[in-house]
Nucleic acid binder design. Structure first.
Lengths: 346, 346
DNA sequence: GTGAAAGCGCTAACAG
DNA sequence: CTGTTAGCGCTTTCAC
């Protein structure tokens, strides 16, 4: 019942504890075979607590994400796991629910339990990265930056470019009344996707009413509410760019509830693919990105940062995105949906 | 840079380490205020490694699931977190990817790092629960039993009843050629959902060809392949019960690829709801269950088991499921889809 | 009330 | 190559 210690193994094998310890770490010893036998017999497992007390290393890394439910982060987890699977690091996965407060708790707790952290901060003015830097915990940021604090290793995607090409796609169909459901605007993806949206419109000299930007907060419910508001506008948009996958679910639910048809009444383009996108009717056009690769790359950078104590320059890598065209976008109807007021402004 | 220790705090506050330790554990101490100040000043955090080396407790619990990507398990995570959020236990979340081998590794690793474990075993003849029992780690099983080993606290749902009522629902529309895409048959939900399916048919004296049971392994790809095979049958079914949500995604993709219409050509009912179910066309009828509650309950049972060292009887609780009717089921067409052979049996 | 000191299980000098 | 031993940071007797 009581877990065997290295002393038990030493006793069983008839050698000293240091010999056992050495063998376990890989040194050559005479009694190798006997020790292995004793280990197996006793089902000995070294105590991580004792090991880390001694070494100052925990053998664990944390992966802190705002939403495990989101398939994107689920994919990141897989990507990260695929790297550690080899190298003997345990992953601590934690969920912050897009909340700065929850993140602070989680990070504070994990701080002392891990050798390094992969973090997707809930927002850009979040103190967690700074806290990690202060505590000297090697950290790499995934998907979201921390401009307020120092420089960190970061694995981003081209949010600006992705949003921009989403809107360009809509423009290419002849849409002008293009709205967006943005995420949390003080997060990296939220901010840049919104800027990309604006940049695309600006470069075509299109000006839109402020209502055409609704803040959905990256969650399904926010997407639902935002779309409801959008469709209730006296002069609703003919196309919408939704800034992430979970909000898209909510938005589509609202669209369905109202009875608007896609793409006849409204073109929709999402950001981030989802297993369901293909089986929707119509299938959803989205901006897609290499999700697992993003997680894997981040983990590789973290591991490297953890071993190279060297104060290497921090790296900031930006992965490309691509448009996956399906069938949720089309030309605007000549007579826009609903009771369109005459002389609608721009 | 270097993390402060309790000795630093003691020094700063001008007391002994034991006084600091006592205060931190909640004892009344004269220097309370000074210690708090020192703690804040130094940003002291006790070392979990040292604490657990001393106490034998880690302050962490593991939550091991076969697939974080699956919204059901994501919900379980949330439910479990909602309980620990209060009580100061860190959750170690791990993913086994429905693999016994991976699970063995993960469990072996986590074994020594946690005080208790919530486990959804990949299969029923999986040695992990036994291993945990041997190691004396309090364990509660979620969603899946371990009949091969001893008794464990377990939080199940009524898989048999759910499957049965799914099939009854199909029967009530007049279907007789009802097929199923089963999960992994050596897992609890896989096994009982298949049995429930069979029981429902048996009680109506319906006999079906063996091809009407396809094994999809609970993953999307398996659902896709299974549905493809099903639709290629010379005498295909008029209705299908798909045993979990991820397989349903795959199955629907296959249906879409082939061009079969729901529910005209084929009625579909799934097991486990999903945010997307409502926005599908047609919306998907499913068997639903209290997911978060299942996770929360399991965590509560684990915490109780961890504190009550008492060898209390193991509990096995079974939660109810319910049918959420939407629009993916309807009566079979008088002339079944495809080139139906005359005199089809059964 | 408080402090001194032992020791949790392990690793890494330091002698042999 | 091997054994002895000193801690890693903390909690907890045991004396005061």
């Amino acid at each position: 019942m009581k877990a065997p210690t290295i002393a038990d193994v030493a006793h069983e094998a008839g050698v000293s504890v240091s010999t056992v310890s050495r063998h376990l770490r890989g040194d050559r010893v005479r009694a190798a075979e006997g020790i292995d036998r004793a280990v197996a017999l006793l089902r000995y497992r070294p105590s991580p607590a004792a090991q880390s007390l001694k070494s100052g290393k925990t053998g664990a890394v944390a992966l802190v994400v705002p939403d495990v439910t989101n398939p994107f982060f689920a994919a990141v987890v897989r990507g990260a796991e695929s790297i550690t699977a080899q190298g003997g690091h345990t992953i601590f996965l934690a969920n912050t629910d897009e909340s700065d407060a929850r993140e602070a708790e989680v990070v504070e707790d994990l701080l002392t339990r891990v050798d390094g952290m992969l973090l997707a901060p809930a927002s850009e003015d979040n103190p967690s990265p700074q806290r990690l830097a202060d505590a000297g915990v090697p950290t790499v940021l995934i998907d979201r930056e921390a401009p307020s604090t120092g420089r960190f290793d970061t694995v981003l995607i081209d949010n600006h470019g992705g949003a921009r090409s989403a809107v360009e796609h809509l423009l290419s169909y002849g849409h002008e009344r293009i709205a967006t459901i943005a995420g949390t605007v003080n997060s990296t993806p939220g901010r840049f996707r919104l800027e990309g949206y604006r940049a695309a419109l600006a470069s075509h000299s299109i000006e839109l009413p402020p209502d055409f930007v609704q803040i959905g907060g990256f969650k399904e419910h926010g997407g639902y509410q935002s779309m409801l508001r959008m469709l209730a506008l006296p002069d609703p948009p003919t196309a919408v760019f939704v800034a992430n996958n979970t909000m898209t679910i909510g938005a589509l639910r609202a669209i369905k509830d109202i009875g608007v048809r896609i793409p006849d009444d409204l073109s929709v383009i999402g950001f981030d693919d989802h297993p369901f996108s293909e089986i929707l009717d119509p299938p959803l056009t989205v901006i897609d990105r290499p999700m697992e690769q993003q997680g894997a790359l981040a983990m590789r950078m973290l591991l490297s940062r953890m071993s190279n104590d060297s104060w290497r320059e921090s790296r900031r890598v930006v992965l490309d995105v691509r448009l996956t065209e399906r069938a949720s976008c089309g030309p605007p109807r000549s007579t826009p949906m609903g009771a369109r007021r005459k002389g609608a402004r721009a």
